[in-house]
């Protein structure tokens, strides 16, 4: 029972990280009509920023500000690229997919050539914190507690923004019908940029929490997380935010349970098998496509 509870907590904290990334990914898909495959890579890049900042300062506030700020800034910096493409190709999701794929290669290259000589980075133990509860081999660390509570708070704030505020209404309007939105006077480009900023904010928060939770990062982490984020989004139904919420949590829990109860590290294989089965049964995703 202790193992179950500990793994459930682990799963929820890991899952809430997936949820944040799936939400940011889907927000850009819905509002800006792009597949930003490089989004998780940008998040890993902000983990590097966080790591780099920790070397120079012990001011936690500054570290957090720099990590989140860099994620927002770099994410917004990609917007003109996608806008230029949209000008030439129309809002073609496939084109954005190809281009963001090449962005992942560039970002991964930067991390593996220029940062820490390509070696994985490890966050200082002061940053990660002590374990809160431990049951033999299974522990729940303070990093995971940050991820769990921070993740829940960020997800709630995101849904509040989207469904209870004027800005959220405008984002939903553009996502449903951007031409009609501009006809009623909503500036579409500005609103798209805002969606990049919000996704960047979610990504930056995730980077902070991931650094505390995982304690390390490597150039390959972006590809690894990216695969899961896009697969989860498709399994949930592209553009389906509530579906992304459920499936992100499910993925985290499945992986944790597999780690807790199965020998060896089969957690990835198991989650991808489950996704395969879902796609065979429900090609439009568990909750339906909304993009």
């Amino acid at each position: 029972m202790e193992v179950f509870i500990a793994q459930l907590l682990n799963g929820l904290s890991l899952g809430s990280m997936y949820v944040l990334l799936v939400l940011g990914f889907n927000l850009m898909l819905l509002v800006a009509k792009i597949i930003q495959f490089a989004y998780p890579h940008l998040v890993v890049l902000s983990m590097y920023v966080c790591w780099g900042m920790l070397k120079y300062t012990s001011n936690v506030f500054l570290v957090i500000l720099a990590s989140i700020g860099s994620c927002i800034a770099i994410n917004i910096a990609t917007e003109p690229i996608f806008r230029l493409l949209a000008k030439r190709h129309g809002l073609d999701i496939n084109v954005s997919f190809v281009v963001s794929m090449s962005m992942t290669l560039v970002i991964t290259d930067i991390m593996s050539h220029l940062l820490n000589y390509g070696f994985p980075i490890a966050f200082p133990s002061k940053w990660i914190g002590k374990s809160v509860i431990g049951f033999g081999l299974i522990t729940f660390s303070s990093g995971q507690a940050y991820a769990l509570f921070g993740g829940i708070a960020a997800v709630l704030a995101f849904f509040y923004l989207l469904y209870r505020t004027r800005q959220g209404r405008v984002l939903r309007a553009i996502s449903e019908n951007s031409l009609l939105s501009s006809i009623i006077g909503i500036p579409t480009i500005k609103t798209r940029v805002i969606s990049y900023a919000i996704a960047g904010l979610l990504g930056g928060l995730t980077a902070i929490m991931l650094s505390k939770m995982l304690g390390s990062a490597s150039p390959a982490l972006g590809d690894f997380v990216g695969m899961k984020i896009i697969a989860t989004s498709i399994v949930a139904g592209l553009g389906n935010l509530k579906g992304g919420l459920v499936c992100g949590l499910l993925l985290g829990i499945t992986e944790s349970m597999a780690i807790g109860y199965l020998p060896g590290s089969w957690s990835n294989a198991i989650s991808f098998m489950m996704m395969l089965i879902v796609m065979l049964i429900k090609p439009e995703g568990l909750f339906g496509i909304k993009a």
Binding site: R169, R172, A173, E176, N177, L179, L180, S181, S182, I183, I184, G185, I186, P187, T188
Partner: peptide, 27 residues
């Protein structure tokens, strides 16, 4: 730009009674 024209006081009611169909009347 269309949004700028709208904000100058031109209100187009497009063909085919277009509404934001996933949102409420109030929204």
């Amino acid at each position: 730009g269309t949004d700028k024209i709208a904000n100058r006081g031109l209100g187009l009611i497009p063909e085919g009674h277009l509404v934001f169909s996933t949102m409420t009347v109030l929204e």
